[in-house]
């Protein structure tokens, strides 16, 4: 579909870019991105991808908006208290850009349902806040061969990695499995700087757009860390792990299962 006059105007600042152009914008318009978790990370990612004209954006989240979310989950407003997060987020995204299709899944992502949701999406953004969900997304994207962006935030620090399954290091190459419950504090226990979610979630959206447009270099085979107190970014190089239980030479994980550890007893996004 050639761009309409309105689209040319709306996306003009993209089209001007040498690496995007009309063809790139058309590519974005025909792309599909899934965001798991409509919380702190999902908020900026959803808003920017909608604004950018990513044609279809999926949202997975089982929660409703509560007061503690509003300090960082900027896609939700005070008037949304009690509203399903996916509905609240969809409304804002469509207010920004009505031509974007937002597909909502008001469910917790599990081993049983996630493989029904993610096929068909070009890229997945992991905006979840607990380890079991992160491993689940990593594994599901591996089996479905869908690239994704992993990220995590806590206190003043965030981390980010983009995974091209079977090509670059995956989440399990670094962390074999979820830590025992309680070993790592959660946001509700340890706290998190609200704007940190904005920085890291925006970086995830950046990775998604670069992947869809096939431009620049993705943060693959490297873990990017960010410290808001020092404003330092660091890239830790790493490689695929031959002993990775998922993508290594002798994989032990051959089917999707839910990890045991599920203690994120907080009022944050659960999946």
């Amino acid at each position: 579909m050639p761009l309409s006059e309105q689209q040319i105007e709306r996306y003009s600042r993209h089209i001007i870019l040498e690496q995007v152009g009309g063809a790139g914008q058309e590519k974005l318009l025909s792309s599909k991105v899934l965001i798991v978790g409509a919380g702190g990370l999902g908020a900026p990612a959803g808003l920017y991808l909608a604004a950018a004209g990513v044609g279809t954006i999926g949202l997975v989240d089982a929660d409703s908006v509560d007061l503690t979310n509003l300090q960082r989950q900027i896609i939700h407003h005070t008037s949304d208290l009690g509203v399903e997060k996916v509905a609240s987020a969809r409304n804002k995204m469509q207010a920004i850009n009505p031509e974007v299709t937002v597909e909502t899944y008001h469910i917790k992502a599990t081993a049983d349902n996630i493989r029904k949701i993610i096929p068909g999406y070009d890229f997945v953004i992991d905006g979840t806040d607990n380890f079991p969900a992160k491993f689940l997304i990593n594994d599901a994207c591996f089996f479905e061969r869908i690239p994704f962006s992993h990220a995590g935030i806590l206190r003043f620090e965030g981390q980010l990695i983009t995974v091209l399954p079977r090509e670059t290091a995956c989440y399990r190459c670094i962390f074999h499995s979820a830590p025992p419950a309680g070993a790592v504090p959660t946001c509700s226990q340890a706290g998190v700087l609200g704007v940190l979610a904005g920085v890291i979630g925006s970086l995830q959206a950046t990775e998604a757009m670069k992947y869809l447009l096939d431009i620049g270099d993705l943060v693959t085979n490297a873990l990017l860390t960010y410290n808001a107190l020092t404003l330092e970014f660091r890239k830790v190089r790493l490689n695929r792990n031959p002993d990775c239980p998922l993508c290594g030479e002798n994989p032990q994980i051959t089917e999707l299962t839910d990890e045991e550890q599920t203690i994120c007893d907080l009022n944050d996004s659960k999946h």
Partner: peptide, 13 residues
């Protein structure tokens, strides 16, 4: 400007 460039660029593509 810059819409003229935007439109010309689309045409060039």
């Amino acid at each position: 400007c810059p819409l003229n460039f935007v439109k010309a660029k689309i045409e060039l593509e």
